[in-house]
C-alpha cells in the first residue's frame, strides 16, 4: 500500500467523520429486518428500501462522505501540500485517493445491500445488489474525488447531483438518466437478478459504458486538475 494511500486511509478512519458512515447502512438493514420480521411481503417494501433508500440515498451519500473525505478535507485544511511537494506523479496520488475511497465505499455499502437482498428475496438478489453497488461505488468515488478539486464546496455540489440531478430531474426528464449513476446501478442489478422490485430504465450496455466513462473520465480529469493545483496566498 502506498504511503499516500496509508495516510489517506488513516485520515479517513481516524476522524470522527468516519462515524457518519455507520447510521445509513445500519438503517438499511434495520428497515429490511423489521419488514421481514413482521412478514410484510417483499413486493411491498423491497423497492422502497432497495431503490428508494439503498441506491438513491445510502450508496451516493456514503460515497460522497468518503470521496470528499479523502481529498476535499485535505484541500480544505491545507495538509495536501505535504503530499504535493513530493516528486510523485500526480497520477499516483489521485489513484491512491480513488482506490481508498472506492474500497471504503464498497465495503460500507455492499454488506448492508447484500443483507437487504437476502431478506427481500434470495442470495442471488443480494449478490446482484452487491455487484451493482460496487460498480456504483467506483463511479461515485471518481466523481466526488474530482469534485473535491473542482470546487471549494464539493459536499454541496455532490448533494445537488444526488438530490436534484438524480433524484428530481431523473424522475421527470428521461434524458438526464444517461448521466445518472443511480440508473446504471439499478440496471446492473436488474440484469443480474431480474425482479419486479427493480425497474431498469436504460440499457445494460449504456449502463456499463457510462460507468466506465465516469470512472476513467473523472479520474483523468482529476489527475490533470491536481497537476495545476494552486495555493491561495494568505497575505496577498
Amino acid at each position: 500500500m502506498s504511503t499516500v494511500a496509508l495516510i489517506t486511509a488513516r485520515g479517513l478512519f481516524g476522524r470522527r467523520r468516519a462515524l457518519l458512515l455507520l447510521p445509513l447502512p445500519l438503517l438499511l438493514i434495520a428497515l429490511a429486518a423489521i419488514c421481514r420480521a413482521y412478514d410484510v411481503p417483499a413486493d411491498q417494501w423491497g423497492q422502497a428500501v432497495i431503490v428508494g433508500l439503498g441506491f438513491a440515498v445510502v450508496l451516493p451519500v456514503v460515497a460522497l462522505i468518503v470521496g470528499t473525505g479523502v481529498l476535499g478535507s485535505e484541500v480544505d485544511d491545507g495538509t495536501l501540500v505535504h503530499i504535493l511537494t513530493k516528486p510523485l506523479p500526480r497520477r499516483d496520488i489521485i489513484l491512491a485517493k480513488f482506490l481508498v475511497a472506492a474500497v471504503a465505499t464498497t465495503i460500507t455499502t455492499v454488506i448492508p445491500l447484500f443483507a437487504v437482498g437476502l431478506l427481500a428475496g434470495s442470495a442471488k438478489l443480494g449478490a446482484a445488489l452487491s455487484v451493482a453497488a460496487a460498480a456504483g461505488a467506483l463511479a461515485y468515488s471518481a466523481l466526488f474525488v474530482l469534485l473535491s478539486l473542482l470546487t471549494r464546496r464539493p459536499v454541496l455540489l455532490g448533494l445537488v447531483y444526488i438530490l436534484v440531478w438524480e433524484g428530481l430531474l431523473g424522475r421527470f426528464l428521461s434524458g438526464t438518466r444517461i448521466l445518472s449513476i443511480e440508473q446504471y446501478v439499478i440496471t446492473i442489478a436488474d440484469t443480474i437478478a431480474p425482479t419486479n422490485m427493480l425497474t431498469a430504465q436504460i440499457g445494460l450496455t449504456t449502463a456499463l459504458v457510462m460507468s466506465v466513462v465516469f470512472v476513467v473520465g473523472c479520474t483523468v480529469a482529476a489527475i490533470n486538475r491536481l497537476g495545476s493545483f494552486t495555493l491561495a496566498g494568505e497575505t496577498s
Binding site: 488513516r10 516528486p87 510523485l88 500526480r90 497537476g227 497575505t235
Partner: peptide, 23 residues
C-alpha cells in the same frame, strides 16, 4: 509549474501550519 520532479530538490514550509495531526 506542473513539474513535480522539482520537489526532489525543493523543500517548502508554508505559512499555514496544517499537518496531518493524527500522525
Amino acid at each position: 509549474w506542473r513539474n513535480p520532479s522539482v520537489y526532489r530538490d525543493l523543500g517548502l514550509v508554508t505559512e499555514r501550519e496544517a499537518v496531518h495531526g493524527f500522525l
